[in-house]
Structure formats: structure tokens, C-alpha cells
């Protein structure tokens, strides 16, 4: 599904976020990407989503070399991924349903089918009945669930989550992880970047540890 081979990323200005990172994420696998702030977790996710390009090495997503993709192909790559990133925040002037509908509208789904799928996604994350609510009126945990519903509504095979439980209390964080696990159980691959080691211990899975841009042995 995802293969990193000797990937390095140097940002303009000289900061080297990743150094020779290699790993693979198999279909249907759940993997944690842990490490301190600035270790390079977010950069890994951005490279997979084509938000950034590797300075060297190759990033394969579904056998496509993301580093070589033409800019016009990047949107189509992203449609196959579910992104729960801080950059992809919710639109606060739109209802919960409108937020979840967005990826389907972009992909050109028929309105009725899109509505059906969006409601089903909201149902899966336990937000049925909150379709008309504005994100502002929801708790942090509920907002995160909306983001998850939006990420999974187009039924991607890979879900990338960057600190999905940040700023949530333990109960809400566990609820979010339960949702992730339920998706993982139906075959969705998950790469979850988190610095919350307790969470990773409560929901065990393979763990990749980044330290100053390198994968710890």
C-alpha cells in the first residue's frame, strides 16, 4: 500500500525533517507513527498525500511514485486517501452534513447518493441526528468525528491521521480510536501519527518511532 525507501526531506531553509526513512504499510494494517514534536511525523503524512515532495528516495502509494506524479495527478491520489490532518480543518460556516458531503461533491457523486453516503458515514462515527449542526456547536471530540466521517465518506483504502486525539480527553480519545479500529477491521489501512504513547499502548499495533527525522531501530 505505502512504501518509503530511503526517503529524505529537506525544507527550503535547510531544515532536514526526514533522513533516509524506509518502511512499508501493508493493506489492512494499522501502524502508529510516534515521536516527539518535530520528529518528522507530519512530514511523512504530507509526503504520502503529495502535499510535499521528497528531496530524495521514493514514496510509493498503491504502486504510484508520489514524488514523480505530475501536479494534475495529485488531486486524484488524494481522493483515494482519507486525510485527517490539521490543515484539512472543518469549514465552520457549513453544516456537519455539508462538510462530510464535500469530498463526494468534488468527486462528482450524484446528490442523492452523496447524501446517502454522508449520512451513513456520520452514522458510523455516532453523529446521526447532528447533520444540520454547525461544527462550532460541537465538542472537540465530535468535531474530530466529523473530520473522520469526511475522511472515510468516499471509502478510501488508506486513512492518514495526524494527532487525531490531540486536545481530547481520555474518553473521547478512546472513542476516536475505537472508530479507527472499526475501520481497520473492515480492511482500511491506517497510519496514525501521535505523540500519545498511552493511546498506542491501549490500542496495540505496530509502531514506528521517529527520532529527529530517522526511524528508530
Amino acid at each position: 500500500m505505502i512504501v518509503f525507501s530511503e526517503v529524505s526531506k529537506r525544507y527550503p531553509g535547510g531544515h532536514e525533517a526526514l533522513r533516509g526513512v524506509s518502511f512499508a504499510l501493508a493493506a489492512g494494517e494499522l501502524v502508529y507513527l510516534t515521536g516527539h514534536s518535530g520528529a518528522g511525523k507530519s512530514t511523512v503524512l504530507k509526503l504520502i498525500a503529495g502535499i510535499e515532495r521528497p528531496s530524495s528516495g521514493t514514496v510509493l502509494v498503491n504502486q504510484q511514485n508520489v514524488g514523480n506524479l505530475r501536479p494534475r495527478a495529485i488531486p486524484f491520489l488524494r481522493r483515494k486517501l482519507g486525510l485527517i490532518l490539521p490543515e484539512a480543518r472543518l469549514l465552520f460556516d457549513r453544516s456537519v452534513l455539508a462538510n462530510v458531503l464535500l469530498p463526494l461533491q468534488i468527486a462528482g457523486y450524484e446528490p442523492l447518493e452523496a447524501q446517502r453516503r454522508a449520512r451513513a458515514a456520520l452514522d458510523k462515527v455516532g453523529l446521526q441526528g447532528r447533520e444540520r449542526a454547525l461544527p462550532m456547536t460541537l465538542s472537540g471530540g465530535e468535531q474530530q468525528r466529523v473530520a473522520i466521517a469526511r475522511a472515510v465518506v468516499a471509502r478510501p483504502s488508506i486513512l492518514l491521521a495526524d494527532e487525531p486525539t490531540a486536545n481530547l480527553d481520555e474518553a473521547q480519545a478512546s472513542a476516536i480510536m475505537e472508530i479507527f479500529r472499526s475501520f481497520n477491521q473492515v480492511g482500511v489501512s491506517l497510519l496514525v501519527a501521535t505523540h500519545d504513547l498511552h493511546l498506542a499502548e491501549r490500542f496495540p499495533a505496530r509502531r514506528l518511532v521517529l527520532e529527529a527525522g530517522r526511524l528508530a531501530p
Partner: peptide, 13 residues
């Protein structure tokens, strides 16, 4: 903000 989100969700230019 909306444009940036849409781009991340797969919207083409």
C-alpha cells in the same frame, strides 16, 4: 481556507 481544504480533499485546480 475552504480552497485549501478542498484541495486537500482532492479538488483539481
Amino acid at each position: 481556507a475552504e480552497i485549501a481544504v478542498a484541495a486537500l480533499l482532492g479538488a483539481t485546480p
